[in-house]
Design a binder for these strands. Structure first.
Length: 453
RNA sequence: GAGGUUGUAGCUCAGUUGGUUAGAGUGUCAGAUUGUGGCUCUGAAGGUCGGGGGUUCGACUCCCCUCAAUCUCCCCA
């Protein structure tokens, strides 16, 4: 074992992995652009105070903080020690750390909007594909450095935006070849359930409990809610709510009879109906799921979650509507709605189902054999001309036996080799061989430049 | 943050109740093979057994600590 190592939860990506990941990134990016979203990049680090308090207590603990420089300067000693005592007491102290690594893309985006909202053309549609860092305990599919791909629309309350985002999900996963179900729900419906159960203040407890339904079963959910102080008739309502089934339309009908008396519940149902009416459920795999809650507390309307249907895996995407994105940055509430793609999990799903196209791995297309000084000079010249035609080529790094040069091409997955030896040099020809078919032909050097690889 | 499992060559893994010089397959490199690869054969390199400490005459093996991977909970992508 080597002594050099990687920090916990981080990874190197070798060529074949990078190519496959780029295939996913490029697919997502091109669809974002197709729908009129603009790119945004923000710094790897933010001021600590920008991030703290935005992700809940658990989230705050998982933020990577950056140690200030110059703490060892003698004149700062007293201050540093005092600040360190503060840290030990569980408080933050900017004398020791005032910057932190980006934890997600949403809060930096909110910060950006708060700083620039007067210049931005509203509604502002941005997408962002960058790594984020979390001091989480790594597990399968969970890392301390991973990429997020977000698209958000801010400054508009229109449900057209939700429809567009639903279509983006459908388009991306269709292009990638992954069968998914797009589960949707509405926070307003969850709020109405809490209201009807006589405990509007219990909404958080109720949503956390019912979100676990498929994991722990209905009895455990009821048990958990009893412990939170819900009574028998409230539990009955929730049980009826959880038993709603059928297709999307009949689910909404049953839901309406249960919580339709609540104004906010009616609104929530109407919003979901709007999405269903403006998308084709024949082609889009939209499934209403009233148990869907999603962890982040800032969602206020429609929420999404994407599940791969052929592989057992956590969600590979999610998002929703929020009404108060910028309020914590002293800017009047700007509403928005956004979605996110989990690239690392999408990669795992595609790898398992072997969905990556074969040509993803094509690197160098042509290898020129190196058969001597004069020969390689001629090869060099031709190689540069091919490169000008956007054909990626390389020349073997030294004169060597055929055997070695063939094996090099084989290992690197190069499909064509071009041989220019003394004979070809004299004739101004070259021999080109397709390593997949084994066929070879000798053509003039001029013809090589127009060869279709 | 709590608990469990695992860690031996680049990779996949053997290694007996603690016993002398830790093995195999695969991969790598060289040769058989001086203008036609993938096969075959021969040979070589590659490990202070994740790291540190302890018990012992003696530790890959037993104990403690630590690091990493992985699983469950929590939380999430």
């Amino acid at each position: 074992m080597s002594k050099v190592s990687l920090p916990q939860g981080t990874r190197d990506f070798s060529a074949d992995v990078v190519r496959k990941r780029n295939y996913i990134f490029n697919t997502i990016r091109s669809v974002f652009e197709l729908y009129g979203f603009q790119p945004l990049e923000t710094p790897a680090m933010e001021n600590l105070e920008t991030l703290m308090g935005k992700y809940g207590d658990e989230g705050d603990k998982l933020i990577f903080k950056i140690l200030n420089n110059g703490l060892d300067r003698p004149e700062k000693k007293e201050k540093t020690i005092a600040a360190f005592e503060n840290i030990l007491a569980g408080k933050n102290n900017t004398a020791i750390t005032e910057r932190a690594l980006r934890y997600d893309l949403t809060i930096p985006f909110a910060r950006f909007v708060a700083m620039n909202h007067q210049q931005l053309v509203m509604p502002f549609k941005r997408y962002q594909i960058q790594p984020v860092w979390r001091a989480d305990r790594p597990q399968r599919g969970r890392y301390r450095e991973f990429y997020q791909c977000d698209a958000d629309i801010v400054g508009s309350n229109s449900l057209i935006n939700e429809v567009e985002l639903t279509n983006i999900y459908a388009t991306v996963f269709k292009q990638l070849g992954i069968d998914v179900s797009i589960r949707i729900n509405n926070r307003k419906i969850l709020a109405a359930l809490a209201e009807v159960c006589g405990g509007a203040d219990k909404m958080i407890d109720i949503t956390i409990a019912i979100d676990k339904l498929d994991k722990i079963g209905i009895d455990k959910v009821k048990e958990e809610l009893t412990n939170k102080g819900l009574n028998e008739s409230q539990l009955n309502t929730i049980e009826k709510y959880l038993q709603i089934d059928g297709d999307n339309r009949s689910k909404l009908q049953k839901l309406n009879s249960l919580i339709g008396i609540s104004a906010i519940g009616k609104k929530g149902i109407e919003e979901i109906e709007f999405i269903l009416n403006h998308t084709s459920t024949k082609t889009l795999p939209i499934v209403t799921d009233f148990t869907l809650a999603r962890g982040l507390n800032y969602y206020t309307g429609i929420i999404f979650e994407i599940q791969a249907t052929q592989v057992k895996m956590g969600s590979i995407g999610g998002g929703g509507r929020y009404d108060n994105l910028t309020s914590t940055f002293q800017v009047p509430d700007i509403p928005g709605v956004g979605i996110s793609f989990g690239v690392d999990r999408i990669y795992d799903v595609m790898d398992e189902l072997q969905l990556f196209p074969k040509d993803v791995q094509t690197g160098t297309q042509v290898l020129f054999f190196n058969l001597g000084n004069l020969e390689s000079d001629a090869a060099f010249n031709l190689m540069q001309q091919l490169r000008n035609k956007h054909i990626s080529c390389e020349i073997y790094h030294e004169q060597a036996k055929f055997d070695k040069q063939f094996k090099y091409a084989d290992k690197k997955g190069i499909n064509y080799i071009v041989i220019i030896g003394s004979q070809e040099l004299a004739d101004k020809t070259c021999t080109i061989k397709n390593l997949l078919t084994g066929k070879q032909q000798t053509i003039t050097q001029d013809e090589l430049l127009d060869f279709v690889f």
